[in-house]
Write a protein that binds this DNA or RNA. Structure first.
Lengths: 214, 214
DNA sequence: AATACTTTGTAGGAAATTCCTACACGAAAA
DNA sequence: TTTTCGTGTAGGAATTTCCTACAAAGTATT
């Protein structure tokens, strides 16, 4: 029972660079339909009516107002709207409670990976509330490392090579298997890690190898 | 004479969400090789030596220090490094002068589109300084509108349909031409507008049609 | 006006990619 | 010991990407 109809998305993010890059990311999913965007809170309120979004993705701190206030106004006008707030800092449980109280469906912080946004979007699309797993730092690293462990020997080999941008053709040759096989591994890797595009794998492998920044 | 060897890139951006989405964007270009990333200035200075990047992409405001300071330290240790600063606000000419004085190769503000980043990166890769065209707001909108006008009739039709996620197959049928032809239009559209992926076109068309935010 | 260069509409070929499906074999679970 | 699961391997179909082509219309140049 997966929500079938498209997600009508409205995005309110002040800085163009972030707005664009989030949108590029989200629009890769063909269930996402962009119905509007704004840089400010008032502009958002003005346009919401015409855009009729199902989900409002809004920054916590806007130039003119704070996202919470705008979200509350928006909700009073369009009660069926699902609001996803993007906070600047990791959200404390207390603060989260306040948000949920206000009718916001989920909060994602800018310190979380982008993929969380998409995941969250899919969760709240039908009005459910979504509280992300670890709002507490601690157990984040393991996710990545375990994920790597979950790959089989061959998959790991291929992941490594692909992350270095070695062409499929060459990987096949090096491993002595057919290109088709390499593609199979690729598919499996992407499924296992939940990736869609090469850059995600490159970043993942880089982080895996350089232990660092999570 | 296009710089052939890969761009060894180091990225220092505090918030994971922005860092990831910028990287996803930049890594789509296969000339970009990620050699390191940090959230903070000191961490950056610690790792730069080992990573040996050609370009350092660094935020102006970091938690622990400001990007300018870090960039200066980095430059004194690695004079051949090209630094690209990401500023929070549009940069005034005066401020820009200060940055250039410090040896920074280019500044891009978070209010500019992501694509500017990539463009700038390509410009400064070989050590040149790059001062982006419009640091003054005014003549931005036209760019987008003119770009659309630059498309031929058929290209406009296809752009419109593709931005609505109509499958190539259906577009071909609707226009009464072959899929191959539609692909040709697609290619031309992307070349003319300088796009690489569908989301860019979707966003472009959305903005074109809703005049707005640009 | 006549010749030359550019854009537009149209499409084909080759290679690569995506999305499925298949299938044997060893390992693990029932 | 059957059944089930993960892994190594690969094939097919449809789509996409990247080029190339080419005639007719349009623009520019001499």
């Amino acid at each position: 029972m997966i929500g079938r109809r498209k997600i009508r998305l409205y995005v309110t993010v002040g800085q163009r660079m972030l707005r664009d890059s989030l949108l590029f990311q989200l629009l890769l999913n063909d269930e996402v339909e962009l119905v509007g965007e704004s840089e400010t809170g008032v502009d958002t309120l003005n346009r919401l009516g015409a855009a009729r979004p199902g989900v409002l993705l809004i920054e916590e701190n806007l130039q003119d107002n704070d996202g919470l206030t705008i979200a509350e106004s928006a909700l009073s006008l369009h009660p069926s709207l699902s609001v996803l707030l993007i906070s600047d800092t990791p959200v404390s449980t207390g603060r989260l409670a306040i948000y949920l109280e206000a009718g916001i469906k989920a909060v994602v912080s800018k310190h979380q990976p982008v993929q969380e946004l998409m995941k969250t979007l899919l969760y709240i699309r039908n009005g459910q509330v979504y509280v992300s797993a670890r709002h507490n730092a601690a157990e984040r690293m393991p996710t990545a490392l375990n994920a790597y462990r979950a790959l089989s020997r061959r998959e790991q080999e291929v992941a490594l090579l692909m992350a270095s941008r070695v062409p499929v053709r060459d990987i096949a040759e090096q491993l002595g298997v057919s290109c088709k096989t390499v593609h199979s591994y690729k598919d499996r890797i992407f499924v296992k890690l939940g990736f869609e595009r090469l850059p995600e794998l490159i970043l993942f492998m880089h982080r895996h190898q350089h232990g660092a920044t999570s």
